[in-house]
Design a binder for these strands. Sequence first.
DNA 1: CAAACTACCTGACTGC
DNA 2: TGCAGTCAGGTAGTTT
Length: 277
Amino acid sequence: MPELPEVETVRSGLARYVIGKQIISAQSFHPRAVKSTSIAPLSTLNGVKIHDIKRRGKFLWFEFNREFVLVAHLGMSGQLLVQRSNFGDSPHLRARFELSSQKVTKNEIKFIDQRTFGWLSIETSNDGVPTSLSKIALDPFEANFDLKAVIINIKRRKCAIKRAILNQNIISGIGNIYADEALWRSKIHPEIICEDLTELEIKNLINAAKSVMRSAIKAGGTSFDEQYKNVNGKSGYFSRSLKVYGREGDKCSRCGAGIRRIAFTNRSSHFCPRCQR
DNA sequence: CAAACTACCTGACTGC
DNA sequence: TGCAGTCAGGTAGTTT
C-alpha cells in the first residue's frame, strides 16, 4: 500500500536507474492507465530524455528536456519496476517505457497495477508543480513545509483527527497505515475532534508521523504481500516495526492492553484503547 | 467552504 | 465445490 515512504522508495530507486536515459518508446495497455485529463498520449514521450524524478506526498513526476512532465500515482496497488525488456510480463502490466541503452536487451520502466486505482498523466507545471497536484498540500519532508500553519489549520477543524491527517489537502503523504502508527506514537485516539486537541498535541502527532515515515523510508517501505515492491522487485521490511496497524488483539508494546480495530468509513483504525484516550 | 458519503477495482479470504 | 459477501484503501466526485 504505497504511502509516502513507499513512493519515496520507488522514486529514489527509479532515479538511480533512469535519470539521464532517453525513452525510446512508450505504450499504454489499459484504458485507465492514462488519466482522461492527460494532455497527450504516452507516445508523446518517444525520444524525451529523463532529467529528474520528483515527489510530493504520494505523487511522483518525471521531468524531461521538455515543457511537460509525466505524473504517476500508484493508487492502491501500483508498481513502477525497472526490468529487462525480455523479463516475463505481469498480467497487470498497464504501461511500459523502453529506455535507451547500448545493449541488445534494453531496460524498461513497467507500470503494473492490479486494482487499477493508479494512473499516469502528461501535464504542464506551474512553478514546478504539475497541475494534478495544484491542491495537494506539501508533505512534512519538504523544505517549505509550514508546521505552524498546518497545526493551526487542523486545530480549527471539526472532523476526527484521523480524517484530518489523511486529508491530502492539509498535509500530504500520510495513508491509513502511518496515520494509525502516528496516532499511537503520540497517544491520540483517532476519533478525537481536531478542535479538542491542543496545538502541542497536534505538533507531536505531525512529528510522530514524520518520524515513523522517516524510519520506514530507511527500511525501504512497508509490505505485507507481493503488492508493493521497490523498483528491483524487492519488498520493504518495515511491516515488522508496526505497533498497531494490522495487530488487532496483540498486546500494546507500551502498556500491554489489547490492540483494537474499529470501522472507519470502509476501512479500519487500529489503536490502543488504554494509551489512546 | 467543510464534512461525509460513494464509486472505482481485483483478488484473497470467509462462511454457508 | 460453489457462490455470495467482506475486506483492503487513495482519490475524485457528489451530496449535505
